[in-house]
């Protein structure tokens, strides 16, 4: 069985919010991803029973600080890189209907 199918690639592209719809593109990424996933399958050779997963290289737990109020960034400044905005608000396309 293929490690990843074209339908799975379409599904993953949709989850990742990437417009990959043309059949040729789907085929291209299916092949590319399959190569990497097949390569990754060699991890199955490793016995990991009883091994804890590592999420972070240097363990740190509950980093806390004093809750001191500080000034945030200026709104006008924050709008500087927004592609479209109006009256101090970020503009998005219609989300209904």
């Amino acid at each position: 069985m293929a490690v990843i199918t074209k339908d799975q690639v379409k599904h993953v592209a949709n989850l990742a919010r990437l417009a990959i719809t043309e059949e040729k593109e789907v085929e291209y990424y299916t092949e590319k991803l399959a190569t990497i996933i097949e390569f990754a399958e060699q991890l199955n050779e490793v016995d990991t029973s009883g091994v804890e997963p590592t999420t972070h290289p240097v363990p740190l737990v509950n980093v806390l600080r004093e809750d001191e109020p500080a000034k945030g960034l200026d709104r006008d400044l924050m709008l500087k890189n927004v592609p479209e905005h109006e009256d101090g608000m970020v503009k998005v396309p219609s989300i209904l209907g």
């Binding site: 996933i37 990754a40 991890l43 490793v46 990991t48 997963p53 590592t54 999420t55």
Partner: peptide
């Protein structure tokens, strides 16, 4: 199969 397995290998 993939993500968690890789995290365990990271421990090793």
């Amino acid at each position: 199969a993939y993500y968690k397995k890789a995290q365990k290998v990271r421990t090793l």
